[in-house]
């Protein structure tokens, strides 16, 4: 279980998070929605320790992340970045097996390659992709490789940062389905941030809306359309009219 308690974060005079409280139960898929610049990525990066919050606590399975061994903590996580963030200088399989060739999870190169190819197959890519470089792949294929890398070490918790940004609707659907299948199959806890309402409906068990630096509403995805919160309603309908300013 992941718990965020009263998380605050500012960058200079700009206050991004103003007391985020959020609980993600073990094995559930939580999707955080919200406009651009509302702090969704900052929230996610705070949990991973990429950004240190100014105030508040983050607990994973009841233990403060600050008190956990950093390597042990990160070994439990997988992350799919918005632009896939693949390492240009490495082959696709080396990207997927990156964690398996270093640190505590290190194993022989041949074995790491085999696992990488199996994970590539799991995300619908053929073994011949393994020896290509990321720059040789399309955006959709790069996202799949990023997904394969995120699940390579079979993490307990997976984060997805804008998983369908920049993809065509069909490829978005493929990625959404893959994410849903993998999360259910692995029994992982998932946290996704997205603007894409199709993704929300495909991936989420629960939804939280971030606005004004706080969680404005959270609840099951089935209640999202009828929750009655004007901010959520405006965001879901994509209307320019409503309490969320169109020009920010």
């Amino acid at each position: 279980m992941i718990e965020l308690q009263d998380i605050h974060k500012s960058f200079g005079p700009k206050q991004i998070l103003r007391g985020v409280d959020l609980t993600i139960p073990k094995g559930e898929s939580m999707v955080i929605i919200g406009g651009s610049g509302t702090g969704k990525s900052v929230t996610l990066k705070c949990v991973l320790g990429l950004i240190r919050p100014d105030r508040g606590r983050i607990l994973v399975d009841g233990t403060d992340v600050e008190q956990q061994d950093r390597d042990d903590f990160l070994a439990r996580f997988g992350m799919l970045f918005q632009g896939a963030a693949l390492f240009d200088s490495l082959h696709v399989w080396e990207n997927v097996a990156f964690r398996l060739m270093r640190g505590k999870l290190k194993r022989p190169r041949a074995e790491a390659r085999e696992i990488a190819i199996e994970k590539l197959r799991r995300v619908g890519l053929t073994p011949d992709v393994a020896d290509q470089y990321p720059a040789e792949l399309s955006g959709g294929m790069q996202k799949r490789v990023g997904l394969a890398r995120a699940i390579a070490a079979e993490p307990e918790i997976i984060f997805f940062d804008e998983p369908t940004t920049g993809l065509d609707p069909i490829m978005s659907g493929v990625i959404n389905d893959l994410i849903r299948e993998i999360v259910v199959e692995m029994g992982a806890t998932a946290m996704t941030i997205t603007h894409d309402m199709t993704s929300v409906r495909a991936i989420a068990d629960k939804v939280a809306m971030l606005h004004g630096g706080k969680i404005r509403w959270s609840g099951p995805v089935s209640e999202m359309d009828s929750c009655g919160d004007p901010y959520v309603t405006q965001f879901v309908s994509g209307s320019a009219e409503g309490p969320i300013e169109a020009v920010r």
């Binding site: 991973l48 632009g83 963030a85 693949l86 240009d88 640190g103």
Partner: peptide, 16 residues
């Protein structure tokens, strides 16, 4: 370029 494309963050999340 690695920094602006989040590859540095990716390294951190991969315990490197």
């Amino acid at each position: 370029t690695m920094k602006v494309t989040e590859q540095i963050d990716a390294l951190v999340t991969l315990s490197t």
